[in-house]
Amino acid sequence: MNSEAGFCHRLGAHCESSTIAGLLRHAGAPLSEPMVFGIAGAIFFGYFDTRMLPFPTFTARSQPGKIRDYLTKYLRIEFPGRRFRHPGKASAALDALLARGTPAAVQVDFFYMDYVPPYSRAHFNGHFVTVAGKRDGVYWVSDAYCAELKPLDAATLERARFARGSFAPRGFMYHVGKVPANLDIEKAIRRGIKHAAFFMLRLPIPFLGVAGIRRLAKKLLDWPRHAVSVDRLAHEMMMIHVMLEDRGTGGAGFRYLYATFLQEAAGVLGKQELACLAREMMENGDAWRAISLFAARTGKKRDVGPDRLEELSAMVRARADAEERLFQELAKVVA
């Protein structure tokens, strides 16, 4: 089933931007998924090695939940949203919206989405889905990672909305409110690109932005110390591929998605330089994909010795240099 209460479901690359694009489409303000992602300046990089994590990891996008914030800021679209202390009140608020025919986005723990195959279920509190309707006590959920709308029982959805841990959703939900009659897309695109360039280049934190890519390149060489066995290290190497390609990134750690945004932006702004940079971003994505394939192959062969790690590290370092230059160019084009 692909439609419920007038809401039309589509498969998407990334849960959060796809959820927002779906809600906007339903509200009569169609923005593509790459446009939502790009205007919110959601491309990013961060390398994390904390005690909260069983193994060092990285992210290639901004913090979950921020896309809505920056779309509100840059496009003046209102997304009324709130968090809850009591699950009962959260469910009642969701039901009230659905009764009015308004689909709502909710933040959930991905682990409880029981319609996904067991092997891909993992605890991650930053997942977003759209609840399109409710029939006979069952919610119909539009999840960007599924081809069709999926049923989810009320108790499971409540558990997913009130999971604890990092990025705990606390029942967070939002819907589309007021959409300005004339969206100033051009200005929003400029601000979105400036935002992304700032966060990639100027954050004075050594594990975020381009510095984060360099940190990954450096720390990769230390990964054998973190892993208890060659098997574990090989598995973590394969997880690089999963993080870059399979976890709702649109390929190459969101770089292809961002290249698509830049191409659309070049058309809107009529800037040829932006189209050239879109091509460079696509090539940059190809190089990230080469990294993910290299990591997956070495992981599969259990060929994770120092030479291979050094090779991988050099490939990642080259991406840091390329992205530093790319975002500097982007900042100049929209200055």
């Binding site: 498969l11 998407g12 690359a13 790459p34 195959p117 891909s120 960007a144 990672y145 081809a147 399979d246 709702g248 649109g250 390929g251 292809y256 998605l257 290249a259 698509t260 696509m282």
Partner: peptide, 8 residues
């Protein structure tokens, strides 16, 4: 296992 990729 289906997913969406952005391509040229």
């Amino acid at each position: 296992y289906q997913l969406v990729l952005y391509v040229e």
